[in-house]
Nucleic acid binder design. Sequence first.
DNA 1: GGCCAGGTCCAAT
DNA 2: ATTGGACATGGC
Length: 277
Amino acid sequence: MSARPGGARARAFDLALTLGSGQFFRYWPLDGGYVIAARGKVFFVRQNDFRLEFSGIAPAALRRFFALDDRSVDSLAVSVEDPKLRGIIRRYPGLRLLRQDPWECLLAFVCSTFSNIPRIRRLLDSICRTYGTPVSFRGQTWYEVPRPGRLGDERGLRRLGAGFRARYLAEAARVVTREHLASLAPKSYAQTRRALLELPGVGEKVADCVSLFAYGHREAFPVDTWIRRVMRRWYCGRSATDREIEQYAHDHFGPQAGLAQQYLYVYVRENWRQRGY
DNA sequence: GGCCAGGTCCAAT
DNA sequence: ATTGGACATGGC
C-alpha cells in the first residue's frame, strides 16, 4: 500500500467539524490529524489552515469523500432567508456533507438506531475488528469495514453488543451487495429511498441518512430526536408530526434541506446538550 | 437506578 | 394511513 503524502487546498472546509458532525463514525485523532477508515481504505488527513495533508488515498478519492468541489453551502446561504439558519451557517463555516460508500453508510446507520454516538462508534469498531480486514498504517493496526458477505450471523453480532440490531444487520447483509447498492447511484432520491426502505432495519430516518450521506441526495431531511426537537420548537409547533416536519423542510429549505438538517443537528448537539457528548 | 439514545417493526385501530 | 408498545444495551 502506497502512502504517498499529498496536499490539497480546501477553502471553507473544517475537517474536525465535518468529521465530528454525526454523519460519520470511523475516524480517530492521530498526530494532529485523523486516521479515517472509509471507502474501503484506511488513510490519514491533517488540516493546517486551508491546507489538507493526506496519505493513503488518491487526491481524486479524497476530494470526492470530502466533497471539496461542493459549492452548496453558498447556495444554501443564498436561498434560505431563515435568520436562525443563516446565523448557524455563519457560526459553523466549513461544515460539509461527506460522500460515503453506500454500504458503509448503511451499516453505520443501521447500527445507529435508538442508540447514541459513543455506542455507535463502539459497535462499529467491534464489527470491523471482528469481521474486517486488518491494515497496518502509520505504525498501528486498523480495520477496514467488512463487505456485506463478511459480516457474521445474528448470534455473532449480538455477542458484539448489537442488541436488537443484530437481526437487522445480519439480514440486511444477506440481501444486499455493494453492487446492488451501487446500482442505485444514478436513481432519483425517491427511487433510492424506496429501495432502501425495503431493507430490514431501514426505516425512513436511516433511508434518509443513507440517501443524504452516501448518495448525495441533498433534499433528504433525516428526522431524528434532535431534529424533531429543534424543528418543533423553532418552526412547526409542539405537536408537529414527522411528516409535517419533512414538508416544512422541503418548503422552506428546498433542495438543500439535507445540509440545513446537518447545520441544525450540529447546532442543537452543541447547544442543547444535556450530557457530556 | 432511572432515563434516554441520530428508530424500526408490528399489531391494532 | 396513523398510533402505541416492544425491543437490547449501555452511557450518564
